[in-house]
């Protein structure tokens, strides 16, 4: 097939030279067109990733090879145990919150006729559209120790003020709150797209059979959306787990290094304190969970593509 189509054009244009003929060969042209992408992936993703592993095995001055020394050192430190705990707590609770709110929003939105969804959908997506580094500044100001506008409301209703970022527990809550605010619209959009692809007749049939709202959700919606739900959740898990912006701006890891997650701790150790190898080791701890989640996402996406190709 490819040989036939490759010789065809040359016959039509007999004046074509040797270079043109090679260029017209399907595979040569294909590889040339992919070359920038291949170079980018090799030089700017694969190489830095491998380099990070190499860096993580050097000493602080990068003069000697220490093997797994940095990783062992980290695992022995109480601060780093907190980092691991805090990263998992942050990612898991934020993803659960985002998925629940996004799912609720998508369901509420699905009741409304599609031609009247635009304005509401547009307004609900604003948290996702504003660059996170900028909107987090707005949140930071809302959490300000002396001028917090939230505390003004609490005062008004007679509830004691909250040290939003000054107390470890509340600081963790605040970060999860900001991340949930930012990420829920994404879940809403993904679920809404999935809901729209569920054939309407299924709901009609369930309604006529007298299914309750819960039964419709449990036996029609969830099975139809299972794949897209798992893709979205895993994807969000990766992004939330690797978050940097929110924690960096709100607390920079404080109070007393109790709210660091992997990325902010790696930044503090590697860039601010200048221990590049240790910083590289910190961020490499993210790799296992990222790899596992990525594997399942890729599997889910491929399966969905096959289903869509078959259907």
């Amino acid at each position: 097939m490819s040989a036939a189509t490759a010789t065809l054009p040359t016959r039509i244009r007999p004046q074509a030279g040797r270079f043109t003929r090679i260029w017209r060969r399907r595979s040569t042209a294909a590889v040339l067109m992919c070359l920038p992408l291949i170079l980018l992936l090799l030089l700017l993703v694969v190489y830095p990733a491998a380099y990070a592993i190499y860096l993580a095995m050097l000493n602080k001055r990068m003069t000697a090879f220490v093997g797994m020394g940095n990783f062992v050192f980290l695992l022995k430190r109480a601060t780093f145990h907190l980092v691991i705990f805090q990263s998992c707590l942050f990612a898991v609770s934020a993803v659960i919150a985002k998925a629940s709110i996004g799912f609720t929003l998508a369901h509420l939105m699905h009741v409304i006729p599609p031609n009247r969804q635009r304005l509401l959908r547009g307004l609900l997506l604003i948290p996702w559209v504003v660059p996170l580094a900028l909107s987090t500044l707005g949140w930071w100001w809302l959490f300000d120790p002396s001028y917090s506008a939230f505390n003004w409301i609490l005062d008004g209703i007679g509830v004691p003020q909250v040290a939003w970022l000054g107390n470890t527990g509340w600081a963790r809550f605040s970060m999860i709150l900001v991340n949930t605010w930012y990420g829920s619209p994404f879940f809403m959009i993904m679920y809404l797209a999935a809901l729209k692809s569920v054939p309407h007749e299924l709901f009609e049939a369930a309604a006529i059979d007298g299914a309750s709202a819960w039964q419709k959700l449990r036996f029609v919606t969830l099975p139809m959306m299972r794949n897209i739900i798992s893709i979205t959740v895993l994807f969000s898990l990766i992004v939330t787990f690797a978050d940097f912006t929110i924690v960096r701006i709100l607390t920079a890891g404080g109070p007393q290094d109790t709210t660091h997650i992997f990325a902010t701790y790696a930044f503090e150790v590697g860039i601010q304190s200048g221990d590049i190898p240790l910083g590289a080791a910190v961020s490499l701890f993210m790799l296992p969970i990222l790899a596992v989640a990525s594997f399942f996402i890729l599997r889910g996406v491929m399966r969905r593509n096959r289903e869509m190709a078959a259907g």
């Binding site: 992919c34 590697g270 961020s283 993210m286």
Partner: peptide
Amino acid sequence: MRFWGSGVLAAGVFLTYLVPDSLLFIPF
């Protein structure tokens, strides 16, 4: 224009999309 390894490359593209910036900022 499928060529040798194009399927692997497409999967690789998707996987690199999942590599977060906070993993590579130190080697970079």
